[in-house]
C-alpha cells in the first residue's frame, strides 16, 4: 500500500513538472504558428490586396486551432458586428491571452502591430509586417532559449520533489 502511495506521489509531482515544462514548448510552438499565420496575412494584404475581414477569414481557415477560430472571429467582428479594427483586435488579443501560452511581451508586439493596421498604403503595410516578423522572430528565439533552459529543470524538479516528498513522508 505504501509503495502504491509513494508511486502516486512521485507520478503527481513529475506530472506537474512536465506540465510546466510543456508550457515552455507550447509558447515556442505558438509563436511559430503566429509567424506563419502573419506571413499568410502579409501575402493576402500586400499581394492579394484582400480587405481585412476577408483576409482574416481566409488565413483563419488555413491555420490550426486555437488560432484559427480567433482569426475568423476578427473577420466576423469587423464585417458583421461592426466593430472598429482596434476593438476587434482587443477582443482577439484578450481571447488569445486566455487560450495560449504566450507572454505579455508577445501579446504587446501584436497589439502595436494592430494599431493602424490597414490605415496605410501598401508600402506602409509591408513595413509593419517586416517589423512584426522581426519581433516575433526575436520572441521566438527567446522562447527557445527559455525552453532549453527551463524545460529540463522543471522535469527533473518534478521528479526530485516527488521523491523528496516520499522520503519525508516515509
Amino acid at each position: 500500500m505504501k509503495i502504491v502511495g509513494a508511486v502516486a506521489i512521485i507520478v503527481a509531482f513529475s506530472a506537474i513538472g512536465f506540465l510546466v515544462a510543456h508550457h515552455y514548448t507550447l509558447r515556442a510552438q505558438q509563436l511559430q504558428m503566429l509567424q506563419s499565420a502573419f506571413g499568410l496575412l502579409e501575402t493576402e494584404i500586400c499581394y492579394g490586396l484582400t480587405p481585412l475581414p476577408k483576409a482574416f477569414d481566409r488565413i483563419g481557415k488555413r491555420t490550426a486551432e486555437p488560432l484559427s477560430s480567433l482569426l475568423i472571429n476578427v473577420g466576423e467582428d469587423l464585417l458583421f458586428h461592426r466593430l472598429t479594427l482596434t476593438e476587434a483586435w482587443r477582443h482577439f488579443l484578450q481571447s488569445l491571452g486566455r487560450v495560449s501560452a504566450l507572454k505579455k511581451n508577445d501579446l504587446d508586439c501584436l497589439w502595436y502591430f494592430g494599431q493602424g493596421l490597414g490605415e496605410g498604403d501598401l508600402a506602409e503595410e509591408k513595413k509593419k509586417f517586416r517589423l512584426l516578423s522581426q519581433q516575433l522572430q526575436e520572441q521566438y528565439q527567446e522562447a527557445i532559449q527559455e525552453r532549453d533552459k527551463n524545460q529540463r529543470i522543471w522535469q527533473y524538479l518534478g521528479i526530485t520533489l516527488g521523491i523528496a516528498a516520499v522520503l519525508i513522508l516515509i
Binding site: 494584404i45 490586396l49 484582400t50 480587405p51 481585412l52 469587423l78 479594427l85
Partner: peptide
Amino acid sequence: NYIIERLNQSSVYAWE
C-alpha cells in the same frame, strides 16, 4: 471616419 472605415473595411491598401 466611421463611415469611411465601414466603406473601406478598415483596409485602405485594398482600395488604392
